[in-house]
């Protein structure tokens, strides 16, 4: 098997303060291959955004990666010097953020902000880099790119700004693109356009994509593989069809049942009880047990490991046949 593009192993991030140390990311491992889209799914606060920031080496202070490896084509990013890391950012790894309205600097033109990254990483002169910008803006479907180059962010709509962000992120042909909820702040019609665009560009450029989202509709649309995170760790990982057809972890099942469907009665829309624990109040044992419908005493005391139950299907749950127990439990409670 060829080496994965990105290999995260046992990543742990901590924040130290006077009140103590919290570990919002605690032992995350997953891989991304070239040309593959991996969706990282979970509720707010599960550590998914922090994981993605750590790949760029941009964990906000006082946070730090204190254990684990992030290997990009075999090179451990956590060991790189600041200078070396900076050369990768925007070049080999780039990121699209979830707030298109505020992610562009309001006082500089689109052209200025885009040529900046091209000039930095691709040794092009001013004229060449402006041509490149126009070409990229055209590629992401912005009408009249020559005019947009001279415009300021506030003159563009949210959808257009997100296209600019995508164009900027892709302008140096990155090997890895991290998209942190790229469509959350956009209208539904624009969402579809942006997702199609990302899919198209990914296929053309063979970029590996990490798509961070809590929108399972988006996941079904674009992902190849899905990593479900809860409480700073991976609780289930499988191919996208596997996740939707045969979810094993009770948390994944909860997430799926909370999505409204076109078929079936409306009353069946499920919700996961309780809320995400804060990193400082993580429960002992399985982190999901206080909210889990099938939790047993074992779950309260012991912390389950991530295990491969089916080929390429990993889950972190003691109840190996979690599915059937879950079904059984559901039957019992509904009857």
């Amino acid at each position: 098997m060829t080496e994965p593009l990105l290999d995260i192993k046992n990543l742990r991030i901590r924040f130290r303060s006077d009140e103590g140390t919290v570990k919002p990311v605690n032992g995350v491992s997953f891989q991304v291959n070239e040309g593959e889209t991996v969706a990282v799914v979970g509720e707010s606060g599960c550590g998914k955004s922090l994981t993605s920031l750590s790949i760029l080496g941009l964990v906000p202070s006082p946070g730090e990666v204190f254990e684990g490896e992030i290997r990009l084509q075999g090179k451990d990013l956590t060991k790189l010097k600041k200078n070396q890391m900076r050369k990768l950012r925007g070049n080999e790894i780039s990121m699209i953020f979830q707030e298109p309205m505020t992610s562009l600097n309001p006082v500089f033109t689109i052209g200025n902000q885009m040529t900046e990254v091209i000039k930095l990483h691709q040794q092009l002169d001013k004229k060449e880099s402006i041509n490149k910008v126009v070409e990229m803006l055209d590629l992401v479907g912005i009408p009249e790119p020559e005019r947009v180059v001279r415009q300021f962010p506030h003159q563009l709509s949210g959808g257009m700004r997100q296209r600019v962000m995508i164009a900027m992120a892709l302008s140096c042909n990155p090997k890895l693109l991290i998209a942190d909820e790229p469509t959350t702040a956009l209208d539904v019609t624009i969402q579809a356009q942006i997702l199609n665009l990302m899919k198209k560009l990914k296929d053309e450029l063979n970029t590996g994509v990490i798509l961070i989202t809590h929108d399972l509709g988006v996941v079904a649309e674009v992902a190849d593989r899905v990593v479900v995170m809860y409480g700073g760790e991976v609780v289930e990982e499988a191919h996208v069809n596997e996740i939707f057809d045969n979810p094993v972890h009770p948390y994944t099942r909860g997430l799926l049942s909370s999505v409204p469907k076109m078929t079936g009665s409306v009353e069946e829309l499920g919700a996961i009880q309780g809320s995400v624990p804060t990193p400082s109040q993580m429960p002992k044992g399985c982190k999901f047990h206080p909210r889990c419908p099938i939790a047993t005493d074992l779950c309260k005391d012991e912390h389950p490991n991530l295990e491969e139950t089916l080929p390429n299907h990993f889950k972190r749950c003691f109840h190996m046949e979690g599915g059937s127990i879950y079904e059984q439990h559901k039957r019992e409670t509904t009857t």
Partner: peptide
């Protein structure tokens, strides 16, 4: 602390450019 500064950093700009160009003007 704003998002566009995070964007500027994610582009791989030097910290001096992030501070003196992107942050200072704002």
């Amino acid at each position: 602390g704003s998002e566009y500064i995070r964007t500027a950093r994610s582009k791989g700009l030097r910290e001096t450019i992030v501070v003196n160009k992107h942050a200072l003007r704002n």
